[in-house]
Design a protein around this nucleic acid. Sequence first.
DNA 1: AATTAGATGTTCT
DNA 2: GAACATCTAATTA
Length: 198
Amino acid sequence: MILNRSFYERNDVCLIAKELLGKTLVTEIDGIRCTGKITETEAYDGRKDKACHAFLNKHTKRTEVMYRAGGTAYVYLCYGIHHLFNVVTNREGLADAVLVRAVEPLSGIEAMIERRGLESVEKRMSSGPGTLTQALGITTDNHGHLLTEGRKIWIEDAKTIPHEDVVSTTRIGIDYAGEDALLPWRYYIKTSKWVSKK
DNA sequence: AATTAGATGTTCT
DNA sequence: GAACATCTAATTA
C-alpha cells in the first residue's frame, strides 16, 4: 500500500523519520522499476533547526517545495555533484523534511549495479545519501514530485521497525549548525549493514 | 587505518 | 569567493 498524505502531513518530523525505516522506496524511472528498504534517515525541522535549509522561514528557489504539503519530494544537488532525496512532511506552509540516507536494495538490482558502475552488489551501492539516489535513478528532475500518486517515485508501507532496533544519533555533515548539530535526529536500523556510518 | 584532494551547482557574502 | 545535508581514489603513516 502506498503511503498517503495523512502519513506525511503529521506535525512530528522525527516520528515520521523513524517510521520511514523499514518502508519500501520505489522508483519507476526510464521504464525500470527499482525498490529498496529504507535503512537510514535524518529529520530536519524548518522552525527550530539551524541545519534545515528552510530554517527561520527561509525561502529560496531551492527550498520552495519544502513549504508544500507533506508527501512532496525535495531533491537538491549537494556539492554540485550528488542528488539528495528528501520527503517533505507537515502541512503546507510548515517546511519540515526527512532526508533518506541509505537503502537496502530489494529489486531492480541489475539496473542499480549498472547505474552505479559496479560489478556486483556491495555495501557502497546504496548506503549513503548520494549513492542511493544514483542507484535508484533519482535526480533533480524529480524535485517537487508528489509521492502519493504512485508515479515515478513513491513509498510503500511495510512493518514498522521495533523501537529497540532503531538507533538514534547525531546527524552527519552539519557541523555549521552549532548546538543543533548535537540533536539526535539521525535514525538507522541497528541490525542493518546498509548504513552510511555507525 | 586514517587523512586528503578533487569533483563542482546553488546559494549567500 | 566561500560554503555546502558527499563520495572516491590516492596518499600517508
